[in-house]
């Protein structure tokens, strides 16, 4: 009987609502994942909205090392072509042709399509 084996580490993630991604909350100690699950919500989300909880053994997570974080997360700020920034000039062009810009707000609004009878 080794009391030390009681203290297994788990990382706790939660989702606030069906549209939100998982958020890392914190970590806890528990003897197994079932116990970790039953403890997670009241330890970290007593006052928060929550609709889903994940617990993961901390040892299962491959995190970046210090060097990797410093080495692999650097980028030159020259990637406008990946974003809408590069295409801002279109707004004026379309305006001249009396058309609106298909920006994020416009495109995300397309989820509603007019219903046709029959």
């Amino acid at each position: 009987m080794n009391e030390q084996d009681f203290y297994q580490e788990f990382e706790v993630f939660s989702r606030k609502n069906p549209r939100s991604g998982l958020m890392h909350q914190f970590s806890l100690l528990a003897p197994n994942e079932e116990m970790a699950m039953i403890l997670a919500q009241e330890n970290f989300m007593r006052r928060e909205e929550v609709m889903d909880v994940w617990v993961v053994p901390s040892s299962s997570i491959r995190h970046m090392t210090d060097e990797e974080r410093q080495a692999l997360t650097q980028r030159i700020d020259n990637k406008n072509y990946r974003t809408t920034k590069a295409y801002g000039y279109l707004r004026k062009k379309w305006q001249d042709k009396e058309q609106g810009m298909l920006d994020e707000q416009e495109i995300m609004s397309w989820k509603e399509v007019k219903k046709h009878r029959g």
Binding site: E3, D5, P31
Partner: peptide, 16 residues
């Protein structure tokens, strides 16, 4: 209540 931690430390091994 150290018996609780000892008991589940043992059980921890055979649980998935």
């Amino acid at each position: 209540n150290s018996w609780v931690r000892e008991a589940l430390a043992v059980a921890g091994g055979d649980r998935p």
